[in-house]
């Protein structure tokens, strides 16, 4: 159990490192929902960094699998739920200007009041959703 905590902490530190380097070098918030939205909203030269950032995210598992860190091979959720959840995540992250990375790491890391509030709200909302879907339905 303690090993898992250390792995989670170290993995989190890598996420924080990638995010702070993007701010230090490129001056950009590593908000993944925002980067996805920006990448798909227009195809221009100014957007290349977004595509290459996303390519890095997608390619990462190829570097970890030789070390025994693999992606899950099955998902605990059915296809219809995935489509509905994806749609809701898309809408929510655009209305709320961010997701776990943008608000939870970068925003809180800058001590932004908006991000602190947003993170508390989406955590609470996710806890309630899981309580309903796993224990009441």
């Amino acid at each position: 159990m303690a090993v898992n905590f250390i792995q989670a902490f170290m993995g989190g530190a890598l996420i924080g490192l990638g995010a702070i380097v993007l701010m230090l070098l490129n001056g950009r918030v590593a908000g993944i929902s925002g980067i996805i939205n920006g990448a798909f909203s227009q195809f221009s030269k100014q957007n290349f960094w977004r595509w290459s950032f996303l390519a890095g995210l997608v390619a990462a598992p190829f570097l970890t699998s030789p070390f025994g860190y693999n992606l899950p091979t099955s998902l605990p959720i059915n296809g219809i739920t995935l489509v509905v959840a994806g749609l809701i995540v898309g809408i929510g992250t655009q209305l709320g200007s961010g997701c776990t990375s943008g608000h939870g790491i970068c925003g809180i890391g800058r001590l932004s009041k908006r991000s602190i509030v947003a993170t508390m709200v989406f955590m609470l909302s996710a806890f309630v959703t899981v309580a309903i879907t796993q224990h009441m339905l």
Partner: peptide, 15 residues
Amino acid sequence: ALLCGLLIGLGLVTS
């Protein structure tokens, strides 16, 4: 940006 995406991806998988 590629490097940062990779780092974050590595963190997501290992964590």
